[in-house]
Simulated scan of single mutants.
Amino acid sequence: MSSISIRPASSDDIEPLFALENNAFRGDRLSRRRLQHWLKAANGILLVCESSDQVVGYGLVILHKGTRLARLYSLAVSAEARGLGVGKKILSALEQASSKQGRLFMRLEVAKNNHVAIKLYESMGYRVFDEYTDYYEDHSDALRMQKRIRSADTAFYTKQTPWYQQTTEFTCGPASLMMAMASLQPSIKPDAMLELDIWREATTIFMTSGHGGCHPIGLALAARRRGFNAAACINTAAPLFIEGVRSEHKKEIMTLVDRQFHQHAQEEHVACLIQDITQEKIQGWLAANCAVLVLISTYRMDGKKAPHWVAVTAIDDDCLYVHDPDTDKDQIPMDCQYMPISREDFSKMSAYGSERIRTAVVISKDPLPETL
């Protein structure tokens, strides 16, 4: 085979890419329509490998908005080009392109019985960190692998945290709290019944539209009632979330609910601290074996500016890592676990609304740190 080159895919490559896709995979294939989508998508990198003007391989990476995570979505090499290092060259080019787009990590999933691909990934520094059962159309299992594609010196605090997907559009708070509690007490099994119980205890009743979200003090109270020491940290003493509500009646209700949460917190020994929430404090809480929830704005992820609770799972010199209980159409659960968000981006995300609300819930099975 003559020398090979790697370049961005163009519209002229759709047919050879589609033919390669169908020859390389028995199932889980990309359609022409999806190939055309990823050719134009701003959050995708689609590269082809060419030899003698023939497409002999391709690779597709998805870049997740608001995070420093890239995901290898597909990698295929033609039969005649296998064993010549084409896959390694494509993957290396994808890593470089993703790194230039500011991504720090590449993740992928690979069939557990695909020993050739696993050997390739391991030779390039990918390591298994989890497994999916019954993942592919043929019901085979998948390994989850990850590699840091940009080096950094890290001071890493991590907490092994099970992931749970919220079952409604308004229960991100309960879902995040269940993940946090389960990280400290594995006997807690997140499920929809517990999720809705917590929402009823913690809801603000109303929000800008639709059902109410969850108040930080309400979430702290829910944790306290389940045997955890808990504190709600908020950077304002004003009632939360009423800025986007136009109805005066709804504002009155939300203000009353806010007042009740403060009253119940005093009665049930839940600390309510009016203070700024810094990344240094989050790092200290994690180092003290606490679990932490933080409210973010989703604008940098989906452009909707919605308040959204996530569970913080780790922190290092570059990023905070979160479990996001929600997924979008291009994500799988793997993409929402230990999501790397740069410190700079997180600083912007974690200030919600025009009033720049910053709030966190800290829980522990041990006494909370005195420096809280």
Rank of each mutant, 00 (worst) to 15 (best):
D141V: 00
Y126T: 02
R34K: 13
V48S: 08
E109V: 01
I149E: 01
I149A: 04
G125Y: 03
V110C: 03
L69I: 05
S98Q: 10
A70I: 06
E15P: 10
Q96A: 15
A70P: 06
L91H: 00
R32W: 11
A76Q: 05
F18A: 14
A70L: 08
R82T: 09
N23G: 09
S78I: 04
G44N: 13
L84V: 09
R33P: 06
I149R: 03
S31R: 09
S52I: 12
N22G: 07
I118D: 04
L120I: 01
V110T: 01
A81S: 04
K88I: 06
D138T: 01
N114E: 06
G102D: 10
L46M: 14
G66N: 05
M145N: 01
H37E: 14
A152R: 09
R150I: 12
I118M: 05
L120P: 01
L30E: 06
L63K: 08
K112G: 12
L84G: 12
D12N: 15
D53W: 14
F105W: 10
M106G: 07
R103Y: 09
T133V: 10
C49D: 10
A117T: 00
A19F: 12
R29I: 00
R29C: 04
L46R: 08
E131K: 08
L35D: 06
V116C: 06
R82H: 07
Y126K: 01
K112M: 13
Y121A: 00
W38T: 10
L30K: 06
D28C: 01
Q96E: 15
V77Y: 02
G83Y: 08
K147C: 00
Q96R: 15
H37S: 12
F129K: 02
G57Q: 07
L47P: 09
K147E: 00
K112E: 15
